[in-house]
Design a protein around this nucleic acid. Structure first.
Lengths: 208, 208
DNA sequence: TTTATTTCACCCTAAACGGGTGAAAATTTT
DNA sequence: AAAATTTTCACCCGTTTAGGGTGAAATAAA
């Protein structure tokens, strides 16, 4: 017989917190060991709670969710964290994922769906709403109409890797002066005059 | 009344190709306009086919799926491409997403699920299997136990942005020599002796 | 109370950078 | 076939940067 999945909820809105606590807690196989209104309040209890999964709000008083994530991961490395939020901003999602969140759910998600997500997360998957998946995908998409030629893009990619002209020349079997020429053209097209600015502009416009 | 979703299948395995063609084609609202065994074969017909969604195999004879993707996107900018493959390698998935794929499905996925995914894609979402979502997430995760200190990591991040010592010094309001000192320590810890190698090692170990 | 981190200093040389200008060969587009 | 773009290389110039060595003081953390 399987052990219950132990859950901790960290969410400042009392209605949402007690609501989810009740709904999830009354589901077979799920045990809400504790529910807190802030990370600062939860911090001292988390290790003792030994949760398998934490539902974590981003907009929290005091330490917010993004700041809390690495702290939680340090205390409980094997604990899965599901972010719960109202906003679906790209930066927020990325920060959360980059800081070790296992998944991302928007508030208003029906409890049934959340319960399902918790199970999926425990079983090794990671729930992502289609909207979020889409954002992740779009963030990987290169700009289709880049002002740079193929060769220039290729060289810019090596510049991004921190390589010097001579290293690039060796790698592409072309002359140092040719690399120089390409980089000059890249600067012209991007209207910059340094590697750092070229990288910045290129990333902003998703040319790389 | 809605128009049927027009689908093109590009898949070299005849069993899979005809199987999916039959199953999807016989579903209300879905119209498989054509099915090809390779991209090279499909290339001349795609524009005339005017598909809304393409199911694209990666392992194809001749032009493979990854190579085909940008060509397809150029011909049909508003067409969604769903990658269909047996392997779930991280690099492959990333290449596909980066080249404009709208989603990613593993072969053996039941036709019902594929039909559902096609619909989701058309409606603006993007289907990702939990395993793939997980890989995407894990790729965003920073290594929790980095040998680098906070300041060193911060400086390495600026190095990755192509910034020079003096630019970094200005940005962090510290002396040029201090930046130098940090970079030296980074090199020591990562056992490298150039920016390019530091960036490479840091990325390999997910320190940034 | 050791250890690690963050800060700064000064020695040095070779390499890399960026601006300017020009031009031939190969591709691609028109 | 002609025009435009891309890719390749050349040589002028001065300034900045990079990386190695060595040392050390002030904080902060273990």
């Amino acid at each position: 017989m399987e052990r219950d999945i132990k859950i901790v909820i960290i969410e400042d809105d009392e209605t949402i917190r007690t609501g989810y606590t009740f709904l999830i807690g009354n589901t077979d196989g799920y045990d809400v060991v504790n529910a807190y209104a802030s990370y600062d309040e939860a911090a001292h209890h988390l290790v003792a709670d030994r949760p398998d999964v934490i539902l974590l709000d981003i907009e929290l008083p005091g330490t917010n969710g993004i700041e809390a994530l690495p702290k939680i991961k340090k205390m409980l490395p094997h604990c899965y964290v599901l972010i719960l939020t109202v906003y679906e901003s790209q930066k927020q999602i990325f920060d959360a994922l980059a800081n070790g969140a296992s998944g991302y759910l928007t508030k208003g998600t029906p409890a049934v769906k959340i319960i399902e997500s918790i199970k999926e997360v425990k079983e090794g998957g990671g729930p992502m709403s289609v909207n979020i998946a889409r954002m992740v995908i779009s963030s990987f998409m290169k700009n289709q109409d880049s002002p740079l030629s193929k060769r220039e893009t290729q060289i810019l990619e090596l510049v991004v890797e921190g390589k010097s002209r001579s290293q690039i020349a060796k790698e592409l079997f072309i002359d140092l002066e040719t690399v120089r020429s390409h980089i000059k053209n890249i600067y012209l097209k991007l209207d910059v005059n340094s590697r750092a600015d070229a990288i910045k502009t290129a990333k902003e416009n998703k040319l790389i």
